[in-house]
Amino acid sequence: MAIRRGRGVAAINYPTGMNLGGDPTQALVHSTPTGNFMVTLSSVDLGQGMKQIMAQICAETIGVPTDRVIIDTADTDTGPHCMGTFASRGTHRAGNAVIQAAKEARQVMLEVAAEELEVNASDLETDGQGNILVKGAPQKSISIFDVALSAHFKRGRSISGRGMFLIPRSYPEKETGAMKPSTCYAHACTVAEVEVDDETGEVTVLSVKNVFEIGRALNPKMVEQQLVGGSWMGISHALYETTEPYYPNRDHGGTDFNQYLMPGPGDLAETEIIVLERPSADGPFGAKGPGEMCANPQIPAVANAVFDAVGVRIDTLPITPERILRALKAQAAG
């Protein structure tokens, strides 16, 4: 009877957006009289930070600091259509819609600035701080605050834009299954290290080293949040979670957080996150959707590590102590 160590690896990819496409998201952007920008959407923030990311995307595209952008979302009386927040699609789909709307608004903004500065709009650039400068002659500039005032009160222009993103729906070919499920994929590789008590069947995940390739980390701290939380959920899926512990038997399902098991703050694996960025061709600034895939590779990595530790395969999730002990018993008998 002993505590045995093992490690396992898994590598995965994951599609961004609704399978087979056909899932639109639209966005509207307009400026207030003093040069703040309103983004109107109907996308839902589930806590992953969709509002913050849309603000950063709009700000980058228009050329203002993020705190000049206001997000109005999840209201069907004001926001244009969004298919929903699922399938790792929020950042990718809504982000692209916001970029398109913000580009159109930016163009009007530059045209108004050009009239004020008596130059061509194509000769202008933004400094990201809220000013519009003449390329090569930065002393000639105007603030976005003044441009917005001019547009509203003097020139009668609407600094606004419409954006939409839709990947045309793909229909699988009946006999061959030829289809286009997604336009871009995130990637991951996880190495898990576990200890298995061969007397109790209990598994302790000592560490997970996760490498995630996500296209672009639009806000690295928020990416980290999602990846750390996802990695935790992956481990939780591997070892604990089910609503029907004796599936397909319907009995003994948990009805509260005491019966439905998940690792608590005292059961955390040492978690390392490394992020690579290969921008996708059609992602907003190259971003892909990391929200789902980040919880996947830990499950097989832990399963493989358990085998490495005690030499039994548990091919049914979750990998409970009971399953491990039964397998060890069968192994000893066999």
Binding site: V228, G229, W232, M233, P265, G266, L268, T271
Partner: peptide, 22 residues
């Protein structure tokens, strides 16, 4: 750290994986 973990152990979080909270 152990005392923090103990103090938070009655609180469920499904998003963060707890480490940032600790």
């Amino acid at each position: 750290r152990e005392e923090v973990v103990e103090a938070l152990s009655g609180n469920i979080c499904r998003c963060t994986g707890y480490e940032p909270i600790i």
